[in-house]
Simulated scan of single mutants.
Amino acid sequence: MNKELVGALDALEKEKGIKKEIVIEALEAALVSAYKRNYDQAQNVEVDFDAVKGNIKVYAVKTVVEEVEDEQQQVSLEGALKVSRGYELGDEIRYEVTPQNFGRIAAQTAKQVIMQRVHEAERNVVFEKYSEYENEIVTGEVERQDSRFIYVSLGTVEAVMPVAEQMPNESYKMHDRIQVFVTKVENSTKGPQVFVSRTAPELLKRLFEKEVPEIYDGVVEIMSIAREAGDRAKVAVRSNDENVDPVGTAVGPKGQRVQVIVNELGGENMDIVEWVDDPARYIANALNPAEVLDVIFDPENERSCTVVVPDYQLSLAIGKRGQNARLAARLTNYKIDIKPESEMTDNAPVDDNDVDTEETED
């Protein structure tokens, strides 16, 4: 058994990349527990494993004391000096106590330890592989679902998509191929656990990077995303090249680029708006397709404003169930209160030239 165990450790290191020293350390600790359990011993023991010959020896470790109170843990100075004249109070003495039939127990324990380390190594390989995909898009296949999750096969691991991360406008069937965003990878006791999403704003960002080379290259930059998954999203973009139109680039010729993303997300509508340094213009752009006459900032709250729109565009600015205004607020990180022009003229003049309302593509 001894030679076989040494060979197994060598093979484990070569094939699985598991250091022999790590396995031996774990094996020695396991053998200590096995000895105490099988021989009903409470004494302090150590196990030495000879990595060359494979021999296993058990030692009882006792501390040299003046007066022995616990024979399992202590030895008198007088008794220690009989072993060697060099011992002093506080020293530790190791006595070999290896049982004759300990080899059988050692073999069983070694097998369990090695199998455990192999499983851990395999889990770590999968964990490290999918940790690289965290915050990225991967393509998987729907395997099954229950009341809590959609289970998506990513090849060597099964990812889970919680209900909150599933698109409300989508139904998932077995063997469907879907693109998902990896939100988190955990190395749990049950193995690597990968969490994925179809609703994360970052999924939308990665899809734009795939479809728009200028975004992937950084010529056009996505500054903010507000999304109500499966229904509508607003994406703010800016150009790092004055010769490149950020909105037109993201939308693509005849809307082809953005249409690919809309199709991937089951018809989710996209508003692509230009991000600008001027907060008033940016807020006006964010409320696209509504026309904005004025943006009045609250002097007591720098992240709050009132937006004035023509009366006939009030419902368009607010949007169905308040969606347009809500997404614009999230996109800009401003609290936006929308007022019709007629309501504001009774209180303060409105300057139509305060805001540049350049039209952006829908």
Rank of each mutant, 00 (worst) to 15 (best):
E4K: 14
V6P: 04
E13W: 01
I24S: 12
L27H: 02
L27K: 05
A30F: 00
A34C: 03
A34E: 00
A42E: 13
A42G: 10
A42P: 08
Q43M: 13
Q43A: 15
V47C: 06
G54W: 01
N55C: 10
V58P: 08
Y59M: 14
V61C: 12
V68W: 02
D70I: 11
L77H: 08
A80H: 02
K82S: 12
E96G: 03
N101G: 14
A110E: 05
R117L: 04
E120L: 10
A121L: 01
E122R: 00
E128G: 05
E128T: 09
T139K: 10
G140H: 07
G140P: 05
V142M: 04
Q145H: 12
F149Q: 06
I150L: 08
G155M: 04
Q166I: 00
Y172F: 07
M174V: 09
R177F: 14
Q179N: 15
K184I: 10
K205H: 10
K205I: 12
R206M: 02
F208G: 06
V212I: 14
A229T: 02
R232H: 09
R232A: 07
A233E: 03
V235T: 03
K254E: 12
Q256I: 14
R257N: 08
V260K: 08
G266P: 13
D278F: 07
P279H: 00
A286W: 05
D294V: 03
R303F: 10
I318Q: 13
A325Y: 00
R326N: 14
R330N: 05
Y334D: 08
I338E: 05
S342F: 06
S342A: 12
D352T: 05
D354V: 05
D354G: 06
V355I: 02
E358D: 08
E361Y: 13
